[in-house]
Simulated assay, not measured.
Amino acid sequence: MANKKYPMTAKGKQKLEAELENLKLKKRPEIIERIKIARGFGDLSENSEYTSAKDEQSVVESRISEIQTMLQYADVVDVTEVDSNEVSVGKKVTFQEADEEPETYQIVGAAESDPTSGKISNDSPIAQSLLGKKVGETVSITTPGGSFDVKIINVTNE
C-alpha cells in the first residue's frame, strides 16, 4: 500500500501541507505541554488529563503520518494535460439525469473530498463512472442506492 498514488489537485496538496505544518508546529507542541503539566498531577494510572492528552497525541501523530504518506505519494493532476471535454480529477463536471435538474461536482482526490461543497472523491461510484468520459456521452452510474443514466453536459477546469 505504500506505493499507492494519491491523486489530488494543487490546491488540495497545499491544503494538506498547511495542515501538516499546523499539526507539527502548533498542535504537537501544545499536546506535549499538556502531557508535561498532567504528569505533575501525580499518579498517571488515574490521571484523566494525562490519559486525554496521550490519546490526543496518538490521534495527531497518526494524522501526521497519514498526511506525510499522502504527500510523499501525491500525484498532482494537471488538468491542462487532459482533453478539455474529458472528465478527470481536478475538473468540474455537470451532468443531468432525465427530467432532473443538472448537477455539478468537482472530482478531487479522496483527501480533498467534501460532498457538501460539491467536491466528490475520485474513488466514489459517481466519479468512477464519469472519469475518462466526454461531454455529450450518456453514462450509467451504479451506486449503493441503485443505477441511473446521466448525460454529461459540461466539463470545465477548476
Rank of each mutant, 00 (worst) to 15 (best):
K54Y: 04
T138Y: 13
A110R: 11
E56R: 04
T94D: 03
G118K: 14
E101K: 05
K133D: 08
T138E: 13
Y73A: 15
E66D: 13
A98I: 00
I67G: 00
I107N: 11
E103M: 13
A98T: 05
S117H: 07
E97C: 02
P125F: 00
Q68R: 15
K54V: 15
E86A: 08
N85Y: 13
V89P: 11
T116M: 04
V82R: 03
G90A: 10
V79S: 15
V89M: 12
D149F: 06
V150Q: 09
G136V: 09
I126H: 01
E56F: 04
N122S: 12
T138S: 15
T80F: 14
A74N: 10
I64T: 12
A127I: 02
D55C: 00
E81G: 03
P144M: 14
Q68V: 10
G146F: 07
V108F: 04
T104C: 02
E97Q: 13
S88W: 00
Q57L: 15
V76L: 06
G118L: 10
I67Q: 11
S88N: 13
K92E: 07
S140A: 07
D149Y: 05
T138D: 06
V76Q: 10
E101C: 01
K119I: 00
T143R: 02
K151F: 13
T80C: 00
Q68N: 14
P102L: 13
K54M: 12
V135L: 08
A74M: 09
A74P: 11
S147L: 05
G145I: 00
S113T: 04
E97K: 14
D123S: 13
D78I: 06
S129L: 03
E112M: 05
Q106C: 11
